[in-house]
Each structure stands twice: as structure tokens, then as C-alpha cells.
Nucleic acid binder design. Sequence first.
DNA 1: TGATCCGGATTGGTAAACCAATGTGGCGAT
DNA 2: ATCGCCACATTGGTTTACCAATCCGGATCA
Lengths: 238, 238
Amino acid sequence: MELIGELDAPRIGALQLDGDGALVQLRAFIARSDLSPLDRLPPERELCETLGVTRNELRKALTILEAEGAVTRHVGRGTFIAEGERPAEQGIGAIAKRTSPRAVMRARFLIEPVIAEEAAQMATQEQVENLIATNAQARAAGSWREYETLDNQFHRQIAEAADNVALLAMFDQLNALRRTVVWGRMRSDRPAPGPDHHSFAQHAAILGALSDRDGALARKAMQSHLSAVADRLFSNAD
Amino acid sequence: MELIGELDAPRIGALQLDGDGALVQLRAFIARSDLSPLDRLPPERELCETLGVTRNELRKALTILEAEGAVTRHVGRGTFIAEGERPAEQGIGAIAKRTSPRAVMRARFLIEPVIAEEAAQMATQEQVENLIATNAQARAAGSWREYETLDNQFHRQIAEAADNVALLAMFDQLNALRRTVVWGRMRSDRPAPGPDHHSFAQHAAILGALSDRDGALARKAMQSHLSAVADRLFSNAD
DNA sequence: TGATCCGGATTGGTAAACCAATGTGGCGAT
DNA sequence: ATCGCCACATTGGTTTACCAATCCGGATCA
């Protein structure tokens, strides 16, 4: 059934241009009329005539630019070139640019204890044993980097033990955010922490609470631990 | 009231809920109904009713997805998932398939109270007043959909008041997950809730705690509220 | 029996009237 | 003269009816 188009014969090449021709023209117009951010561009009814497109086509193009964050539109006021950057995407990187290490650690301090409390109620015996094993491995780490990996694993295993994929996803996102934002403060060339490192005792306290199914204690132990971590991070002391 | 250069108050994340509700819902729909490339999605007239948005809003969202290359549209044939696979939405969609409404609501029950507690300490007077205004608007909502929008706004404003972008990002992700997973239990054609709806009193309790800067009370009030929401959601009673 | 063609149903696209938010300017009271 | 207020013009947004491309099922004919 490829016989269509014989009668009306719409220009084949013109079809593609028709589809987003307005967008191309609009982009060209903005570029050529060197508008600076926060400047207003002509009203739709006027601009569509200038560009030789229908108001519908123009509005479709404007909708795309708006989604890209290139322009903002306000009823009664007009359409404006967006200021500064394009806050369009919402990935980890975009969030990271708008937050700070302190804020991320604060968020961690608020959320992880709750996860630990939930884990205390949900963890299986096997998961607790795995946590104990991980903590033991961390004690024996040969380098700071190896220790860090095991420390991450410890915290994530707790989140896994909460047995809630949604909660685990929250943890992972926050963790990714932390790695992005706090990165640079980590000096991975340091030697491995000694067996008397405060974290080990704190981890052990968390483990004890998990074993005892003591949610409130697990929460408090995690809070204490993260407080210490934040202090160490921001004081530049060991 | 100058809206343009408001940099002193970090109004960072007004990205999603405000104007592009249809786009969020549409993305969630595509993620949830695991459509493979070249699959056709429902016709506009049907889909807009399913999602509880107007055809205009849906078409605007589709225009954006089309510009992103996520879908292709053909008159008389329909709208199709683009050929080149879409790795973008992998996050929420992938998580959604591995979790359940109960788990998501549980995560919400664990996290939002902590956010409320933080908000009680961080909120500005203006933010509290805005929350009061939002709650008042929700009372006067004319339709269930409008009420739902305002309810979402209420909860997000609390998250904003915590003044922590990382925390706000967690909230947004959980909220997106909830919309994807819990969807289908929402009956958007129901009439607006009466002024004696339990949520209003519970919201008021939260507001009171925020006004008094009583973090512990805010946490408990939010817990009570979310408990009630979950009960209502899973019991199918109003 | 099979292909072909036609007419209606379906579906995305379009145009124009209408709406609501906003800005502007003049008018009048003080 | 100055301030407040109100009517009107401007502007982006929305609704509605309609259009055009496509699909589908049955009628028709070789």
C-alpha cells in the first residue's frame, strides 16, 4: 500500500522540514537577534508571522525549548530567554552541583539511622553474619582504599537487610551523591586504619543492636557513627 | 513582588510537579507498562483519560518525548516507542518492577517523618505560611485530581523546607517511585474530599508542629498521617 | 478462492475562538 | 501633584470542532 501520496504529492523533503522547521527557525531567530538572558522575545502572534509559521507550530517549538530549559513562559508577561544554565536534567551530577558535602552528610545522618532501625527488625540471621564477616574483613584491610570499599559494603548490606527495594534505591542514590560530592576530600593514599579505629567499635555497636533486634539502639548507634564520620570529614583530623 | 532574581532563598527544585505533571505521569506510564521498542502505546484520547490529564497536556508531554527521540508519532497509526531503546528512564522503571506498593509506602513512612522533623528546625516563617496556604487550597479543591496535586505540593513543600537539596532529591525520587508503583489504586474520578477529610486535620497537626519548631512532634504527626494514608490505600475504604 | 476496492472507524494533527493571568494607563479622590 | 483603583489591552494557555492520514472489514468481481 505504498501508493499513497501520488495525488497530493506532498514534497518528500519538505515533510521533515515541516515537522520541526519551526524549531529550526526559532533557534535561528534567537541566535541572530542576540537576546541576552531574561530578555523577552516577541509575542507569539507576532513572532509566528515573522517566521512564517503558524502559531501552533511556533508553540510546539517553544514547548520544546521550554522543556530544554532554554526559555520560560508566563501568561500575560511573555516568553523570556532563560537565565544562566539549564536545570533540565535531574541526574546525580545535576543534584551534586546544587548541594554541598555538609548537606549530603546531613541527609545521610538523617536517613541511614532509620534504615538501620528498619534493618534491625527485618534482617535475617544470615545477613547479620555477613555483616559481621564484612566488618572483620574491614579490620584486616591492607590499604585505606580497601578499607573504604569494605566500609561501603558494610553500610549497603545494612540497607539490603532492611528488605525494601525502594529504601535500598534511596540509599544507593544518596551514596552515589555522596561519592560525587564528597569526592576530593578523600585521601586514598592514606594507610589502612588500625584495629583501634573508632569506626570498628561503632560498627560493632550497630551489629550488636541488629543481632538483638533492637531497632532504637541500632538507630542511635548509626547516628553516633555518622556523627563521628562527619566530624572526621570536616575537621580534617584523622 | 520580584520573581526573577530571587537568589537569596534557595528555591532550587521547582522542576517537576508544577507544570509538567502530564510529562511525569506519561514517563511513569511508559516505565510501568514495560513497552518494548516499536510497541504502540494507547491512542491519545484514551491515554489522556487513563492518566487523568487533558488531551492538550498529554500532547504537550508527547511533543517533548518526541523531541527527545523517545517516541515517534504517525497520523492514523499511533504513537510508538522509539527504536533506539531508551536507557534514560532505567532508574525509576527498573526499581518499580522489583518493588511493591507496600514497600514504597513503607519507605515513605520511614523517610518522610525524618524530613518533617528536619523541616521543623529549618523552615522559614514564609515557608510555614505557604504550607498553611496550600493546605487551605487543598480544602477547597473542586476535584479529586486537584486535591491530589495540592496534597503532593504540601508534602513537597515540607521537603523543600528541610533546606537540603540532597534530602529533597531523595524525596523526589521516592515520590516518582510512588507514582509509578502505587498508580492504578488511585481513582482520579472520585469527587473532591470533604472538609472533614482526615488528611486535613493531620496536615494541620503537622503544620502546628512545624510552627512550634517541635521536631519530634512533627515526626510523629507525619508518621500518623502516613499510617492513615497507607491504611486507606490498602483497605480500599475511603 | 483470491485479490481488489471502497467506506467507515480510528488516530494524530491543526486552526480559531475563547479564557485567564498580567501589564498599562487614565481617571478621580485627597 | 500623588496615590489608589479600575477598565482595557496584551499575552500565553486551553478548549473545541474539524481535518488528514491510516487501518480494517466486508463487498465485489475475475
